Amino acid sequence: MSALLDAVSRRRSHSKVTTDAPSHEELLPLVAAAARVADHGALRPWRLIEVRGERRRQLGDAFVAASGVTGEEASRLAAKPLRAELLIALIVSRRDSEKVAVWEQDAAAAGVGHILSLLLDDSGWGVMWRTGPLARTELVRRVHRLTDAEEVLGWLYVGGVPADSRPGVRTAIDPGEYLTEL
């Protein structure tokens, strides 16, 4: 098995991570590599936003305000962005193009997020891609300072892998059921 196939095959989401997180400088080469994703027209219709420290609390407050929940439910919702010291917001940043459809731009942005999650995992970090119904609310858009052509695809929650971590188990597939011939 190649090193790449092995790395992809062992990737698992980590719903719980430690307070360790990669630095901005550690992220840069991973982002450069993730930028190699298939991208029709080389539009680079994506960007990434590091969410650290107090900004995570602001995101939690936006979740609560956008949802309208109160009490204990609001406290739980506000705490969601605090599950990791680093969140990386995955932003689709659509470009005007006669040749490249919107769905292709969304796919390129999602591809960057997925490749970045693989690279982080391969670098020893715990990662989980999270999203939900609040990702595209106006209050969450404002926290991220999005333009009219941008939307949040989700967040990579990134941190250290706990010593007692048991990442989620994904059932193996029969690839023949998913790869067919025309």
Rank of each mutant, 00 (worst) to 15 (best):
S2H: 15
L4K: 01
L5V: 11
D6H: 07
V8G: 08
R10S: 12
R11Y: 01
R12D: 00
S13L: 05
S13H: 04
H14Q: 12
S15R: 15
S15H: 13
T18H: 10
D20A: 15
A21R: 15
S23E: 00
P29E: 06
L30G: 05
A33N: 04
R36H: 15
A38H: 14
D39Y: 10
H40T: 12
G41I: 07
R44V: 04
R44S: 13
L48F: 07
R52P: 11
E54D: 13
R55W: 01
R56F: 05
L59R: 02
A62H: 03
F63N: 02
A65W: 00
A66R: 00
G68F: 10
V69W: 05
G71L: 11
G71H: 10
E72M: 06
R76T: 02
L77R: 12
A79K: 14
A79N: 10
P81A: 07
L82C: 07
L82T: 09
L86V: 09
L86A: 13
L87M: 07
L90K: 07
R94C: 13
R95H: 14
E98K: 15
V100P: 04
V102T: 13
W103L: 10
Q105V: 09
A107N: 01
A110V: 06
H114Y: 07
I115Y: 08
L116S: 02
L116F: 13
S117D: 06
S117N: 06
D122W: 04
S123M: 00
S123Y: 00
G124W: 02
G124E: 13
M128W: 04
W129D: 10
R130F: 02
T131S: 15
G132L: 08
G132F: 04
L134D: 10
A135D: 14
E138V: 10
V143C: 00
V143E: 14
R145S: 15
V152R: 06
G154I: 07
W155R: 11
W155N: 02
L156Y: 10
G160L: 01
G160C: 05
V161C: 05
A163L: 11
A172P: 12
A172C: 03
I173Q: 08
Y178N: 12
E181V: 11
